[in-house]
Design a protein around this nucleic acid. Structure first.
Lengths: 160, 160
DNA sequence: AAGCCTCTGTTCAAATTTGAAATAGTGCTA
DNA sequence: TAGCACTATTTCAAATTTGAACAGAGGCTT
């Protein structure tokens, strides 16, 4: 009984890992074929385009992308070279800097978005019925909340 | 209506991506903290330990891990240096080679497994109810089947 | 049995990612 | 207001990953 439960969960876990890996690989490939952008580039552009002033602090961006600080520094430097973003040092806090979306970056995003969205739908979303969407949303939003909370708790030494 | 559906799916998609990224990062971190193994190392060991003769062809392994051929070559070379696996050229087909689990590799897997499983349960599985497990399993097994089929179809020029 | 594709893996250089230090700036406390 | 303990980000070297080019078989077809 317990074993059966466990093995069911293990099968679930394996299917999730393998399929996710495969999906991310496929989406990256599709995106590169359609657009000169990597999945990471695309994601940066989306976040910046939605941010007020189309700009975000490095730390904020790193947190949302789930990138290490140094990885984000490299990522933004690379995008800056290609003209997709610009950098400005933050006026409030001179330690910080922010990445700002450029016109070229916005254009690149607009050109890539339809292809990418089509790809996401074709590989994943179109196959899901409403109940499945609801289930995945519930599960992954809960998971995200927990993991963010764990991370925050980990950075604070915590009381006792 | 259509828009609402779309935005629901988009929210689902985003939660899935972000949480998955965070989860994989966390599991990798936990595993490294408990065991000298990376997530990739662990996965290789699991696959080999389950294979008949505790050995697998490079291509087979790459396919299951969703690794590029060169990435797998590097991965196995690295594990071989650490004594976790050995390599043998394949008797049937001299082009090929296989990775074989060593005693040290099996031991490392056995030592790491409890920690890793605990981590998987703590971060994800324990929070899921049976219906959610069933839903995820269904969705991701279907997704995996489709993606594997797409990949196979892509490698064959296809008829018309 | 030579010629010619097709597989399997590997190699190599370039690009990316990691993790530990280094830099710089903030802000609290004595 | 000097000193300290943080914080935000960058830098740097080492490790990993990618993708294209290669080398070594197989497996026909002629």
């Amino acid at each position: 009984m317990t074993e059966s439960l466990d093995s069911e969960r293990m099968a679930c876990w394996r299917a999730y890992i393998e399929s996710s890996q495969r999906l991310f690989t496929q989406l990256e490939e599709d995106l590169r074929a359609a657009s000169a952008l990597s999945f990471a580039d695309y994601h940066v552009l989306v976040l910046l385009s939605e941010a007020p002033g189309q700009r975000l602090r490095m730390g904020e961006l790193a947190g949302r992308l789930v990138f290490s600080p140094s990885r984000l520094t490299y990522q933004i430097a690379s995008m800056q070279k290609r003209g997709l973003v610009a950098r400005q040092s933050c006026p409030q806090d001179r330690r910080g800097s922010e990445a700002v979306l450029t016109a070229a970056g916005l254009l690149a995003l607009r050109e890539a978005a339809p292809h990418h969205l089509r790809s996401v739908h074709a590989h994943l979303m179109d196959d899901l019925d409403d109940a499945e969407v609801a289930c995945l949303t519930r599960v992954f939003e809960r998971l995200g909340r927990r993991l963010r909370a764990d991370r925050d708790a980990a950075s604070t030494p915590a009381d006792k």
